[in-house]
Computed example of a mutant assay.
Amino acid sequence: MSGNQVCGELSNQIYVNLGKSFLGRMMVGHSSTYDKKLGDRKLSLFANLQGKVLEINPRNGSNLPYYPNNIDLIAIEPSLQMHSSLRKQAKKLGLNIDIRFGNAEWLDVEDNSVDTVVATFVLSSVPNINYTLQAILRVLKPGGRLLFIEHIPAPKGSFLRKIQNTISPIWKTLAANSHRDREIDVALENAGFTSVSYEQFQLGLFMMNQHIIGVAKK
C-alpha cells in the first residue's frame, strides 16, 4: 500500500470519527427532550402488556420504566456490554428479565411463543428489514402483536426527502447503519401481518422529524 493510500484512509477515518462525534453530541443534546416527548406515547403503547414480551435491542433500557412488572420479559441485546446494566435496571424496577445475546434477524426464541414484540427505533437500522419482520412473525403467537415506534422519511417529493435520499449512505456510516430513507411503514404493511395500524407524528428534529407509532398483529 502506498503512502498516499495510507494517508487517504487515515483522512477518511478522521472525517468519519469527527462526524460520529458531532452526531453523538447532537443526539445527547436532544435526548432528554426526545425522551420526554415520547414518554406519554410509550405509556399508552405499553399500557396493556401482559404475558411473554420480547424486546429487540433494548440498548440502555429506555423502555423498561414503562413496562408493567407482571410480564415475563425477554431482551435480545447484541451488545454484551449492555447486559449487566440492563439486568441491574430491571431488578431495580422489579421486572423479571431474561437477557439473551442475538440481533433483530436472529431471535433466540421459540416459534409461536411470544405474546408481544417491542421494537423501538430498531427497524431503521437492521441490515435487512424484511428478514427482521419475518423473524418477528415467526416468534409471535397467533394473534400476537408487534408494538413499534420508528423514524420514517419525509414525504416523497419534499425537499427534506431529497436531502435524506442524498445523505443516506453517509448517515448510515455515522449513525450505526440507520437508514434515513427507509420506508418502514411500507415494509410493515407488506410483511404479512393480518393488520397494521399506526399514526404519524413529528418531534421537531431536522433529520428525524417524521415518526410512526403503532401496532401490527399476526
Rank of each mutant, 00 (worst) to 15 (best):
A154D: 06
F148H: 01
D115I: 01
V114N: 05
N128L: 05
F121Q: 14
L147A: 02
L146N: 08
V139P: 06
R145Q: 14
R145K: 15
V139M: 03
V109K: 02
V109W: 03
I149N: 13
A119C: 11
L147S: 00
N165Y: 06
P142Q: 09
T120R: 01
S113F: 01
L160D: 09
I136M: 11
V114F: 04
V114E: 05
V114M: 04
V118Y: 12
F159M: 10
V114S: 08
L160N: 02
T120A: 01
I149M: 15
N165K: 13
S158E: 05
K162Y: 11
S113A: 13
V117R: 06
R161W: 03
E150L: 06
Y131G: 02
P155C: 12
P142W: 08
L140D: 02
P127Y: 06
V118G: 09
G144S: 04
I152N: 07
D111Y: 01
F148S: 03
D108E: 08
E105K: 03
P127H: 04
R138K: 14
R138Q: 08
P153Q: 10
P155L: 11
V139T: 11
P153D: 15
N130T: 14
D108F: 01
L137N: 06
N165G: 11
P142E: 05
L123D: 00
D108Y: 00
P153M: 10
L137C: 00
K141Y: 04
H151W: 01
D108L: 04
R161A: 06
R138D: 10
F121W: 14
T132N: 08
N128R: 12
I129R: 10
L146T: 02
I129L: 14
T120V: 07
T132M: 12
V122W: 03
L137E: 04
L160C: 09
W106Q: 14
A154T: 02
E110Q: 08
L140V: 04
E110M: 00
V114R: 07
P142A: 07
K162W: 13
A119R: 00
L140Q: 08
A154I: 00
P127S: 11
